[in-house]
Simulated assay, not measured.
Amino acid sequence: MTTSTPATGRIVLLTASHRVAPGLLSWPAWQTLREAGRVLCADPDHPQLPYLREAGIAVETAAPTARELVDACVTTGATVVVLAAGEGDRALTDGLARLAGSGRERMPDLELLPGAYDLPGSRLLDLVQVMDRIRAECPWSAGRTHEELAKYAIEEAYELVEAIEDGDRDELREELGDVLLQVVFHARIAEEDPETPFSVDDVAATIVEKLIHRHPHVFGEEHAETPEEVRALWLRTKAEEKGRESVTDGVPPGQPALALAAKLAARARTAGIAVPLPQGGGVGDTLLALAARAAEEGVDPESALRASARAYRAAIRAAETGGGDGAPEVPEAAEAEGTGPSGG
């Protein structure tokens, strides 16, 4: 006569991302919750609880040890779902791992069931929440204004460029975060404006609308097969959108002088406007001519000059230590920046 082994039950650790709206659980998660013998949660304020109760699922507020949970499942053969807190329950999971790894225990089936996954970009929500708290609780951050922070935006942008030129991936990731912080910080300050407040959501909505409008070849009926066609379409769409009267409109005069000169030359060339360059022979005219030539050749003069300057700096340092052996090697000039589609 064959005797069957009693069922040992099942323990399901159900996790859900706090970055996804409560109640938006996967179908396997809802199915498991409905079929479970017991549903336990140690946190009486867990954000999922109102939605589970609304769905008719009884949830016990309890925090059993691993030993208690295993014994309950083995005795009854039931499925017990443990709704994990936001940070998880390290003591419970470690205890279950020790019991399962001992080889001496009659264990229920163990399952980790993600009920909701983070969506791409969801960590941005964390940044917004952290910035909210810093603005409210940090004495320095609480008093800052747009004007006071403007210089940091410029500094962080230059540090980002340096990280790109250095090819340092870790530094690039960090500097991108620093630039992103400036956007979120300014948006948080803007919420407090008494007359025209706006939030980071408004900032995101504005750039999304702009990108969709300026990419009709992606989101609309226009066609553009080459980068040149995309650029021409972009400039036409942007001009119509801004109602600009001159090709120089929208070129910020406060940008670095070489970039300004190259941008103006590129705008004139793209519009087919033949304007002779100044011929005074001064240093400024010479630099303007070089910047215009760089733009025509698809080279960003700022990047090219920075590359040469960095090589020159290395040669100076080598000479200071007695290691100089001739002219510095200049990296190949970068392609032109700032003359193609951007958010501006």
Rank of each mutant, 00 (worst) to 15 (best):
residue 1 M to K: 04
residue 1 M to Q: 00
residue 4 S to W: 08
residue 9 G to S: 14
residue 10 R to N: 08
residue 15 T to Q: 13
residue 16 A to E: 15
residue 18 H to G: 13
residue 24 L to C: 06
residue 35 E to K: 02
residue 46 H to T: 14
residue 48 Q to T: 10
residue 49 L to G: 07
residue 52 L to D: 01
residue 54 E to N: 05
residue 55 A to G: 05
residue 55 A to E: 06
residue 63 A to L: 14
residue 68 E to C: 06
residue 71 D to P: 00
residue 72 A to G: 03
residue 72 A to E: 07
residue 77 G to H: 04
residue 79 T to I: 01
residue 80 V to N: 05
residue 82 V to A: 04
residue 87 E to M: 09
residue 89 D to M: 10
residue 95 G to F: 04
residue 104 R to W: 10
residue 114 P to N: 11
residue 117 Y to N: 05
residue 117 Y to Q: 14
residue 121 G to L: 13
residue 124 L to V: 10
residue 124 L to H: 15
residue 125 L to H: 12
residue 128 V to E: 11
residue 129 Q to W: 03
residue 132 D to L: 11
residue 134 I to L: 15
residue 142 A to C: 15
residue 157 A to D: 00
residue 160 L to A: 11
residue 162 E to H: 06
residue 166 D to G: 07
residue 166 D to T: 09
residue 169 R to G: 02
residue 170 D to W: 09
residue 172 L to K: 08
residue 178 D to S: 03
residue 192 E to C: 13
residue 197 P to F: 07
residue 203 V to E: 12
residue 204 A to M: 14
residue 204 A to P: 02
residue 206 T to N: 01
residue 207 I to L: 06
residue 211 L to Q: 12
residue 213 H to C: 03
residue 214 R to K: 15
residue 217 H to C: 05
residue 220 G to Q: 09
residue 226 T to E: 07
residue 230 V to D: 04
residue 238 K to F: 01
residue 246 S to F: 02
residue 247 V to D: 00
residue 250 G to V: 04
residue 261 A to Y: 13
residue 268 A to C: 01
residue 268 A to M: 03
residue 270 T to A: 15
residue 274 A to N: 05
residue 285 D to V: 09
residue 291 A to H: 01
residue 292 A to G: 03
residue 297 E to M: 05
residue 297 E to W: 02
residue 303 S to K: 01
residue 308 S to F: 10
residue 311 A to S: 08
residue 315 A to L: 01
residue 318 A to Q: 12
residue 331 P to F: 14
residue 334 A to W: 01
residue 334 A to P: 02
residue 340 G to E: 00
residue 344 G to F: 01
